[in-house]
Nucleic acid binder design. Structure first.
Lengths: 361, 361
DNA sequence: TTGTACGCGTTATCAG
DNA sequence: CTGATAACGCGTACAA
C-alpha cells in the first residue's frame, strides 16, 4: 500500500477506474461534518452522542451506504463478535437443527456464527480451526472430542474458549454439552432385545476419529453382552453417513446366515438407507427384519416404516452450547459440562420378532 | 487502545493475566531473528526468500503456533480470499448439496466460504449482506432474484461481484446460474396431466419475495390453462417449507369437494409432509391421491411412496456458481447467465388416475 | 535477499 | 459532547 491518500481519493472518484472502494469512516465523517471519533461513537454507543449529531451522522451513513469494515473493527477493538463452528458436513441434516439453534441464540446476543465443514477429516478440521482463529473468532464450537492433541494445543495457545458438543466430556479437560451416546445406544438395544430380537446386526458410522460413532457401538455391545450375545464381523459393518452407504451395507447383512432379525444403525441416514436397500431386496421391514436408527431427524419420520430411533435434543444442545460459550466469552463462571437427556421414539420400523426363538432357559 | 507497547508485552507474558494474546508477525520475526517484512514474504511468497531464512521463519511459526490475523491481512492487502453466501435456511436439505459443491470448488481455489441464513426474510437477508460486505468478502452468492432494489444498490455501491443462483436472470442485469423453474414445473404438470389427472391441487411455497416458488406456481398454471383448467383457491395453498406445514396443508385439500386426484407440491419437503398428512387421514398414496414434489433431495427417495419429482442439478449449480464468481473476481470475462437442464424423476408417488373421468370431447 | 517505514479503517484515550 | 491521535497486525514500495 504505497498510494498516497490524495492519489487514492482521486482513484476513488475516477470514472474510468472499475474497482470501487467502499466508503470509510472518514468519508462519513467528512460528509457529516464531524470527526471520525464521533462517527465511531454514533455507531457503537449512540447514547453518548447528541441527538442532532447522531441524526446527521446516520443520514450520512445512509447516503453513502456505509458498512463498517469488519477487519479494521476487530483489529482495533480486539473483539470480533463472531464465533465459529466446525461441523463434519452439511450434506445431511444431522447437524442442521442444532446449528440453527446455535445461530439463533448467538445472533440474539449480537454475535455472528461462522460455519465451516471438515468432511469428517481431522486434518481438514485443524485447518478450519486455524482459519477461524485467524479470523479472530471469540469462541468456537466443535463436534465431539476425538481429534489430535495438536488441535487442542492450537486452541490452548490461542486462548479462545471453545465447547465440544454431541458428546459429554465427563472427566476430560474440555467444556462440553451433549448426551451419553453410549447409554442411549444401550437403552435402544435393550428395547430391541425386549422385542424378542436375539440375532442383532449393526451398521455403524465410521468410528475412526468419531467418538459418537464409537460410543454407540460400545453401547450396543454392552447391552448385548449383558445377555451373553456378541457383535462381531460380519454382523457389524461401518459405513459413511449416506443413504447409498446404508443401502449398500444392508445388502451384505441380509445375505448372512443366520440372518439377523434386526439391524441397529448408527444414525437415521444409515437406517433410511438400510430400509431402501432391504426394499430393493424385497425384504419386508419390519416383518422380516426390523431397523432402528439414531438421532431422530426429519428422515426418521418420513421413512416407511417410520423409524424407531433415539431422540436427540438437537435444538436444546445448540442453545446450551451458545449459552455456555456466551458465558465463557463474557468471563462468567459457567457449568463445565452440560449433559442432556435422550429418549427412545418408538415408531413402526421395530417389531416384535416373528419367529421367536425358544427361550433359552 | 492506549496501552503502550511495553505495557502490553508485559501483560502478554504475565502469569496472572488470563487473557492470552495471539502471537503476531513481529513475535515470529523476533524469534526468527529477521524483520517482519521477511516473515510476511515467507508466508505469502516463499520463493522470494532464501531457503535458510525460510526454514528459520517456518520453525518460529511452528513454535509459536502463529496464525495470521485475518482482519489485518485483509486490511493491508485489500483482499480477503473469502466469498459469502446467504441462503434462506439450513434446516432442510434444499440448499445443502449445492452449497457443498460451491464450497468444494472455492476451497480448491484457496478461498473460504462464509455462510449466512436469512430465514426467507428479505430484511434479514439485507442485514446478512451488509455483514458479509463488512467482512470484506471478494464475492457473494445469493439465492434467487426477488429482493428489494435497496439490496442491489448496496451491492452495486460495494462493487463486490455477485451471482444469483436457482433462477436464471434472463434479460435481467444480474449474473446468474440456475434453471427454468417455471418450465420445469410446467413439464412436471404435463406429466401429471398425461397420467390422466384433471383435478389438480397445489401446495406451493410462500411466493412472497420468492421467485422460485412463484415461478413454479406459474408453470403449473400454464400447463393447466393449456387444457382449459384453472388453479385457484382453495385448490392452491401456500405453506412454509416444512414437513409439518405440508402435512397441515394437505388436510385442507383432502377435505375439498370435488377432491383433487393429485397434489403438486412446490418442493419435496412439502410433498413428504403431504404424504405424512394423507397417511394420518388414511388416504392411500398414490391410489387415492397422487403427490409430486420438486428438487429431488434425499427425502424424495426415502418417502413412501417415493416421490416423483423435478430433478435439479444441485451440485452442478454450486460448481458453476463458484466458477462464475472466481472468474469475476479474477476479472476474467465470463458467461453472464448459465442455464442448466432439469429432468423429471418418475417414482411411485404419481399414478394414473384411477377413476378416469370420461373424456370431454 | 533483507530491513525500514508507512498506510489500511477502526476504536479508545485523553484533552478540550 | 467532541476532536485529535496513537495503537491494532499485516503488506509492500523503496532503500540498502
Amino acid at each position: 500500500m504505497h498510494r498516497r491518500r490524495s492519489a487514492q481519493v482521486a482513484e476513488r472518484n475516477s470514472v474510468i477506474d472499475r474497482k470501487k472502494t467502499r466508503p470509510t469512516l472518514s468519508d462519513v465523517a467528512r460528509l457529516a461534518g464531524v470527526s471520525t471519533a464521533t462517527v465511531s461513537r454514533t455507531l457503537t454507543r449512540p447514547a453518548t452522542v447528541s441527538r442532532e449529531t447522531r441524526e446527521r451522522v446516520n443520514a450520512a451513513v445512509q447516503e453513502l451506504g456505509y458498512v463498517p469494515n469488519f477487519g479494521a473493527r476487530a483489529l482495533a477493538s480486539n473483539r470480533s463478535n463472531t464465533v465459529g463452528a466446525v461441523i463434519p458436513t452439511m450434506e445431511n441434516a444431522i447437524f442442521a437443527r442444532g446449528l440453527q439453534a446455535l445461530e439463533e441464540t448467538l445472533s440474539a446476543n449480537g454475535i455472528t456464527l461462522l460455519v465451516a465443514t471438515s468432511h469428517y477429516d481431522v486434518d481438514a478440521e485443524a485447518g478450519q480451526v486455524r482459519t477461524l482463529l485467524g479470523r479472530g473468532i471469540d469462541g468456537l464450537v466443535l463436534i465431539g472430542e476425538a481429534r489430535p492433541q495438536s488441535t487442542y494445543d492450537l486452541l490452548a495457545r490461542s486462548g479462545v474458549p471453545y465447547v465440544l458438543v454431541w458428546n459429554p466430556n465427563g472427566d476430560g479437560p474440555h467444556c462440553s454439552v451433549g448426551f451419553d451416546n453410549r447409554a442411549a445406544a444401550r437403552t435402544m438395544t435393550e428395547e430391541v432385545l425386549a422385542h424378542g430380537h436375539r440375532r442383532v446386526a449393526m451398521i455403524a458410522g465410521v468410528t475412526e476419529w468419531n467418538d459418537r460413532a464409537a460410543e454407540r457401538v460400545a453401547g450396543v455391545r454392552g447391552a448385548l453382552e449383558a445377555l451373553g450375545l456378541d457383535l462381531e464381523r460380519p454382523y457389524i459393518v461401518e459405513a459413511a453417513y449416506s443413504l447409498e452407504a446404508g443401502a449398500e451395507a444392508v445388502k451384505g447383512l441380509a445375505r448372512l446366515n443366520p440372518r439377523p432379525t434386526v439391524i441397529i444403525c448408527g444414525n437415521d441416514v444409515l437406517a433410511a438407507g438400510a430400509i431402501l436397500g432391504l426394499r430393493e431386496l424385497g425384504i419386508a421391514v419390519p416383518d422380516a427384519i426390523s431397523v432402528v436408527g439414531y438421532d431422530d431427524i426429519d428422515l426418521a419420520e418420513v421413512a416407511t416404516p417410520a423409524l424407531t430411533t433415539v431422540h436427540v435434543p438437537h435444538r436444546r444442545m445448540g442453545k446450551a452450547a451458545a449459552e455456555l460459550l456466551l458465558g465463557m466469552i463474557g468471563n462468567v463462571e459457567v457449568r463445565r459440562n452440560v449433559v442432556l437427556e435422550t429418549s427412545i421414539t418408538l415408531r413402526s420400523s421395530l417389531a416384535r420378532v416373528a419367529d421367536a426363538e425358544p427361550p433359552v432357559w
